[in-house]
């Protein structure tokens, strides 16, 4: 980082915050503050939805994931377009016609207050905890790369978001997201282009693609049916459908985005374009990781991508061991580079025998590299007790900091900060809306005036932001807490989806049946979590099905009881 990078980084962030605060000033009624006066055109709805879903970790981890195990992660998103179609048909017109502020408000008109409060409580619990991690996860990586204190990084991101979300509400969130996503995608494409342009002079785009394919990185589709493994087409289509129905249909962080659409049509179009663009966008981000991988076939990759952690380990008695392993790694690389050049030659000659020979050699060398990297990780873990030696989240950002020209480094860091801010802003805004509308206005202070609720919503936004920052600093002390929060969505999403699907499609089911079915389903899911090792993707499906089936049974029994009593 030099002064140009710092200027670009801070100018970008300050301009976005100032723009969001200025453009959304003067919301004095609750419609303006929580729904942005329903003024968003479809393209802004779409950009907001995409910016909310893609957190900073998406842009840091996804290229690293492709670098390590190829593009198979893409399959996880195959259920998303189907969910967009289903929600466009059902949820969007329902929410718009009932003029709700939150998804949970609809549940009271369809069922009753206790079902609405239960769903709102589940949401506040899972999103309240995960907003802390949305801030913490990128802070950890950024603080390592910039050599900042982790708590200062957390407070920096949290405070920037707090300024415009508290002052401008939903309008500020969606106004800033369209620019944040533009910066994010622009920066990512520039980074990918840089990786490609730094390949040896004569390698074409197609050849880079073929090299990646020969190295097994273009494993886009796996047809085997196994719902406990998230990386096959069926898990993506079935498990992904349930997950994304719940996330986009029943999680206020997303529902709040399309409730701001200016009409049913505009909200629908926003969802439809998300369904059209999401998979190609993930393809591009994953492919950037592949380009970095191909780049490192011809250029020396770091033996361990978290440079700062390796430097710390080099201050200990293990320094000699690590240095020896590193020079061994360098030797292996020279051999690999030669084979990679042979592979390109074989591809050009279109000689299948030579291609296979080169590929087998490279696979053997990669095996050696993997062993050395494993040994280095063991040494670092021994040198720094309790260190997390997973370094795939650092692959992309280390590449950026090492190989991108000054100016672009600042831009790419602005990308990571912007992505963290965009998704945090939606989450804080949704937490505040749900607290204000479903709890405070409904059950605590039902008869206050409009301006009072705007003020209360501002306080709730600030309160959740401070809670998120405090939770992030606790998370820094507890690795297993982070893992728990990362799966907490899976624990509640299935049940919430079951409640909403019963509401949308099963007129037969009434409030008592769905309420008790949801509580039993949640107990079943928690039992599975504590006492079985079932795949998390299955929780969404099981939770949802248990709610629907049980609610049906309870309703049937209740109806029989009423019939008997009336005879």
């Amino acid at each position: 980082m030099n002064s140009i990078d710092w200027v670009i980084l801070f100018t970008t962030l300050i301009l976005i915050v100032a723009y969001g605060t200025w453009k959304s000033r003067g919301s004095r009624n609750i419609d303006g503050y929580l729904l942005g006066n329903k003024s968003l055109p479809w393209w802004n709805v779409c950009l907001s939805i995409m910016a909310t879903q893609a957190s900073a970790i998406t842009f840091l981890s996804t290229p690293g994931q492709a670098y390590e195990d190829g593009m198979r992660f893409l399959q996880f998103y195959f259920g998303l377009p189907l969910a967009m179609v289903i929600l466009s048909i059902t949820a969007v017109p329902l929410y718009h016609r009932l003029k709700v502020y939150t998804a949970y408000e609809y549940l009271e008109s369809r069922f009753d207050l206790k079902t609405r409060s239960l769903a709102a409580f589940f949401f506040l619990m899972l999103r309240g905890l995960s907003v802390g991690i949305t801030i913490y996860a990128p802070s950890l990586i950024l603080s390592t790369m910039l050599d900042w204190n982790i708590n200062i990084t957390t407070i920096f991101i949290g405070s920037l978001v707090m300024i415009y979300t508290v002052s401008g509400g939903t309008k500020a969130v969606s106004m800033t997201q369209k620019y944040q996503l533009t910066i994010i995608m622009g920066g990512m494409i520039i980074a990918g282009w840089t990786a490609f342009s730094k390949l040896p002079d004569n390698i074409t785009f197609t050849e880079a693609f073929q090299v990646a394919g020969e190295m097994g990185k273009l494993n886009l589709i796996n047809l085997s049916f196994d719902l406990s493994d998230r990386y096959n087409i069926w898990s993506g289509l079935i498990g992904g459908l349930f997950l994304f129905l719940s996330y986009f249909g029943a999680d206020q962080s997303q529902v709040g985005r399309y409730l701001g659409g200016s009409s049913i049509g505009q909200s629908r179009l926003g969802l439809i374009f998300n369904g059209l663009l999401k998979i190609p966008m993930q393809f591009v981000i994953l492919y950037i990781g592949i380009l970095v991988f191909v780049f490192y076939q011809f250029n020396q990759a770091p033996v361990f991508h978290n440079q700062s952690m390796k430097d710390k380990a080099m201050q200990t008695e293990y320094a000699g061991d690590i240095a020896a392993l590193e020079s061994e790694y360098d030797k292996v690389f020279i051999e690999k580079k030669k084979e990679a050049e042979n592979l390109v030659g074989a591809i050009r000659a279109d000689n299948p025998t030579l291609i296979q020979q080169s590929r087998e050699s490279i696979e053997r060398i990669q095996g050696e590299e993997k062993v050395i990297r494993g040994q280095v990780k063991d040494k670092i873990a021994a040198a720094i007790p309790g260190a997390n030696t997973l370094d795939k989240d650092y692959v992309f950002i280390t590449f950026v900091m090492t190989y991108l020209p000054h100016g672009l480094i600042g831009l790419l860091l602005a990308v990571v900060f912007s992505a963290a801010m965009a998704s945090t802003a939606s989450e804080l805004n949704a937490l505040a809306s749900t607290t204000a509308v479903d709890i405070y206005k409904r059950s605590i202070a039902p008869n206050a005036n409009d301006y009072h609720y705007v003020k209360a919503s501002k306080w709730f936004t600030a309160g959740w932001a401070i809670f998120g920052m405090m939770f992030a600093s606790i998370a820094n002390q507890a690795e297993n807490l982070i893992q728990f929060v990362n799966i907490i969505g899976s624990l509640f999403y299935g049940t919430i989806l079951g409640i909403f699907l019963s509401a949308f499609y099963l007129k037969y089911i009434k409030s008592n049946a769905v309420f008790f079915a949801a509580i039993i389903a949640e107990a079943v899911i928690l039992y599975c979590y504590f006492f079985t090792d079932m795949a998390f993707l299955l929780y969404n499906i099981i939770g949802c099905l248990v709610v629907v089936v049980l609610a049906y049974v309870i309703q049937f029994i209740e109806n029989q009881g009423i019939k008997k009593a009336s005879q």
Partner: peptide, 28 residues
């Protein structure tokens, strides 16, 4: 107060993408 063609478009684009990705997986 034609949506269905938009819904079909989403499904067809998804299907085309899956076919392209399947082709890439098997031929590279």
């Amino acid at each position: 107060e034609r949506w269905s063609s938009w819904y079909w478009l989403v499904m067809i684009v998804l299907a085309i993408q899956i076919i392209i990705y399947l082709f890439i997986t098997t031929s590279f």
